[in-house]
């Protein structure tokens, strides 16, 4: 039996300490960066916050000529486009993930899985250009006229689909976002479904459950934490997406009841206007928009964490 070499042990101890310090520095770095971003955003947004006060987030006006700014239209656009995207992408991503893990013939499993991952690797600008040149004309010619025609006799719904079919607008931005977040949601959910122990599933089948019953009573309950995580990952991306949205949203600082009307989001407003913004109040208002997005994203993540904690507490699996 080898005797422990004391020199070797001392060396190991030093390595251990260096490694520990290194990881600690890396972890603290994240806090410093996050704090730095928050502080500089707040400092940049201060002139606008002082000048407009609370009315900054309740007013729709955005007029660089008279130097009056309000963030309501970008906030509205950000939230609504993300909600449309989630409404479309969550069911689709859920379906893809379930199909891949539970129902897919082994031959198709890899090609579809790789395709989903490749979709996630497409740069957002490509989605923007595709949305503008391919999707928008199709929506303008075929989808939007149909929506306007069929919605107009349904009270309430007709308000959502009014006005001229431009092809671009809030709805188109929601579509493009849905496609962009789909791979994230699908891939996360698939990975989570894959972690369900086969024994649980086989026990279900052994008891005579159908595939449907196994999915809803075994797979989904077992992976609900991961499902929420996947949705939040997608939502986070949808809220902050800039370039693709800028191409297809129509960039109007207006709130309209119609989903076909042009709108704007926080990040697309910043991308559009920051380079040519002259004057302190204008620049500061754009930074204040950035701060608002930071707060919205932060709230979403915090809410997701709280939800996850509650889910974990309820039924430990």
């Amino acid at each position: 039996m080898a005797i422990i070499d004391s020199r070797h042990a001392a060396k190991q101890l030093i390595y251990e300490r260096i490694f520990r310090a290194g990881t600690l520095v890396a972890a603290i770095l994240v806090l410093i960066i996050l704090g730095g971003v928050a502080v500089s955003l707040m400092r940049g947004a201060w002139p606008a916050a002082r000048h407009f006060g609370f009315s900054f987030i309740t007013r729709e006006i955005w007029n660089p000529v008279t130097d009056e700014y309000g963030a309501l239209a970008p906030i509205y656009g950000t939230v609504v486009t993300s909600l449309i995207a989630m409404a479309l992408a969550v069911p689709a991503g859920f379906g893809i993930a379930l199909f891949l893990t539970e129902l897919c013939p082994p031959l198709l499993k890899r090609p579809i899985g790789v395709a989903v991952e490749l979709l996630a690797a497409v740069p957002s600008i490509i989605f923007g250009i595709w949305g503008l040149f391919v999707l928008a004309p199709v929506l303008q010619r075929h989808v939007q006229p149909w929506l306007i025609e069929h919605a107009h006799s349904i009270p309430g719904v007709n308000k959502l689909f009014m006005g001229p079919p431009f092809g671009i607008g809030i709805l188109t931005a929601g579509f493009v976002l849905a496609i962009m977040v789909l791979p994230f949601i699908a891939a996360t959910m698939r990975d989570v479904f894959d972690t369900v122990p086969p024994m649980l599933k086989e026990s279900g089948y052994g008891l005579g459950a159908t595939t449907w019953e196994v999915i809803w009573n075994v797979v989904v309950p077992h992976s609900r934490v991961g499902i929420v995580g996947g949705i939040m990952l997608g939502l986070g991306r949808a809220l902050g997406e800039t370039m693709a949205v800028t191409f297809v949203i129509g960039n109007a600082h207006r709130i309209s009841s119609s989903l076909l009307a042009p709108g704007t989001t926080i990040s697309s407003s910043i991308a559009n206007e920051f380079t040519e913004a002259v004057g302190d109040l204008y620049t500061s208002s754009l930074i204040a928009l950035g701060l608002l997005l930071f707060l919205i994203t932060f709230t979403v993540i915090a809410a997701a964490q709280a939800l996850l904690r509650r889910l974990e507490q309820r039924v430990p699996l």
Partner: peptide, 15 residues
């Protein structure tokens, strides 16, 4: 008014 960005009352904005 005149500026490098203005608030347009109508129409659609393209980048």
């Amino acid at each position: 008014g005149a500026n490098s960005s203005v608030q347009w009352p109508a129409g659609i904005g393209a980048k």
